[in-house]
Computed example of a mutant assay.
Amino acid sequence: MASDTLDGLKVAILITDGFEQVEMTEPRRALDQAGAETQIVSPKDGQVKAWKFTEWGDEFPVGMSLNGARPDDYDALLLPGGVINPDTLRAIPAAVAFAKAFFDGGKPVASICHGPWTIIEAGAARGRRLTSWPSLRTDLRNAGADWVDEQVVVNGNLVTSRKPDDIPAFNRAVIELFASARGNARAA
């Protein structure tokens, strides 16, 4: 993938403590390598702590407090999973409103694993075909989504994936969707 594919694209990574480390670090690395500027946005100040499969992982600096973040300042949104992270975010009205603004604005959103819990809470699951960690199947169907068990699903401005094993396919789809959306925005 070309290093300038996403040159100038600004991507918010909405997380709090308990995000699955690899579901943030690997997509972030792919986005950065494609030329995007990524920034961690969090309701926490200072550092956020990752979950690494079965135990606590590394800490990462928060680039922008959720209270100071404006969706208009970003071109795309990444919603990593883990169980703790999206379960916490979906209970924070400001986090839900932040995510909802990307859907309302037609901006691209990428979500993996349990990340779609935030999509449900933002009211953006209805009528969409998507995937997630299998335990979210009923939640997503109850929210009006067409849940499928596939490695990666692109539906309009949303790309979803199931789990860490899907990250290579997820990253390719994220880069393609984000590049396409950027091209559409520039053409408008």
Rank of each mutant, 00 (worst) to 15 (best):
F103Q: 05
F103D: 04
F103E: 04
G105P: 01
G106A: 09
G106M: 07
P108F: 09
V109A: 04
S111E: 07
S111A: 15
S111I: 07
S111K: 04
I112Q: 02
I112W: 03
I112C: 03
C113R: 13
H114F: 12
H114Y: 12
G115S: 05
P116I: 03
T118W: 02
E121F: 01
A122K: 06
A122M: 02
G123L: 08
G123F: 05
A125T: 14
A125W: 13
G127K: 14
G127D: 10
R128Q: 12
R128A: 09
R129G: 00
R129D: 06
R129A: 06
L130N: 11
T131W: 03
T131R: 05
S132Y: 10
W133S: 03
P134M: 10
P134S: 14
S135R: 15
S135K: 15
L136N: 14
R137G: 10
R137C: 04
R137N: 12
T138D: 15
R141Q: 15
R141K: 15
G144R: 15
G144Y: 14
G144Q: 13
G144T: 13
D146L: 01
W147Q: 03
W147T: 04
W147C: 03
V148T: 08
V148M: 07
D149F: 07
D149T: 02
D149V: 01
Q151A: 13
V152N: 06
V152Y: 06
V154K: 07
V154A: 10
V154W: 01
G156S: 10
G156M: 05
G156V: 06
G156A: 12
N157S: 14
L158I: 02
V159P: 13
T160I: 02
S161D: 08
R162N: 05
K163W: 10
D165T: 14
D165L: 07
D165Y: 01
P168M: 09
A169N: 08
A169P: 07
A169E: 08
F170G: 15
N171V: 01
A173I: 02
A173E: 06
V174Q: 07
